[in-house]
């Protein structure tokens, strides 16, 4: 479903070049649940932005459902994005819209009937425990609540792939566990889930319980992958070659 082939991403800033990802090779199958684990600045958000076509790879190719994103027509981009549900690290809620509207408009964009919207928005919000705050504006919610609205929005239009960037970054541990278990439940109905996080303790707990795949990013490289143990050795060898100690988190 998702395939990264020798993908590198270099951000050009005025002063220098910032290597965010370096020669990434990852394949994620349909129906998988994958944690992307890594310290801050490891390149996790960049990884997601490449899937969303918010950024273009400097080198290499990204495929989604066999479609090479670097060769996707500009006109087709919206339709590709509709197949995904995205929880952004910075939420990206629209401040002038109520919670209900924030979820509803993302469905409207996808050309879903207003009847379906009316039914599904409250349902999606109840999944994240916000059914009684539908008429609030995002500013009137806590950070964690805003994050849960973002989760509801990502789920509401029924995507085949859920991508979440630090979805528990602003939520207390208990609620974090609930959100993660919500993703696990969604995955049970064969929806592919990619969750990016730096909370390795939470990942450890969940991955063991649900047998999830964990890919660790470090310094823009894949440092380990529970589905491909050989990756870790390759990473260590590469780091030693460069005279560096392999670090993970």
């Amino acid at each position: 479903m998702i395939q990264f082939e020798h993908v590198s991403k270099v951000y050009e800033t005025q002063s220098d070049e910032n290597v965010a990802l370096e020669d990434i090779n990852i394949q994620i199958e349909e129906g998988e649940f994958v944690f992307i684990l890594g310290h801050s600045g490891a390149g996790k958000s960049t990884f997601l932005k490449l899937m969303l076509m918010e950024e273009k790879p400097t080198k290499g190719k990204v495929f989604i459902n066999g479609q090479d994103l670097t060769r996707l027509r500009r006109r087709k981009v919206p339709y590709m994005r509709r197949q995904m549900g995205v929880v952004f690290q910075d939420f990206r809620l629209i401040p002038t819209m109520t919670v209900y509207e924030n979820v509803a408009f993302a469905m409207r964009v996808t050309n879903i009937s207003s009847k379906t919207i009316k039914n599904r928005v409250p349902f999606a919000l109840s999944l994240v425990g916000l059914e009684d705050k539908m008429d609030r504006l995002p500013d009137e919610l806590s950070g964690g609540e805003q994050q849960r609205v973002a989760v509801a929005r990502a789920l509401a239009h029924g995507p085949k792939l859920i991508i979440a960037d630090e979805p528990t970054g602003n939520i207390d541990p208990e609620m974090s566990m609930d959100i993660m278990q919500l993703f696990e439940a969604i995955n049970k109905v064969h929806i592919t889930v990619v969750v990016v996080t730096h909370e390795h303790e939470l990942v450890q707990k969940l991955a063991q319980k649900y047998n999830n795949r964990v890919i660790t990013l470090a310094h823009g490289q894949v440092a380990s992958d529970t589905s491909h143990p050989e990756v870790a050795e390759m990473y260590e060898a590469r780091m030693r070659e460069m005279g560096m100690e392999p670090t993970y988190l």
Binding site: L52, E54, R75, P78, Y79, M80, R81, R82, V86, F88, R92, L93, I94, T96, F105, A106, V109, T110, R153
Partner: peptide, 16 residues
Amino acid sequence: RKEIGIMKLVGATNGF
């Protein structure tokens, strides 16, 4: 403009 950016990321077409 922020709103437009978000709409684009959730899959809105330019026409919409």
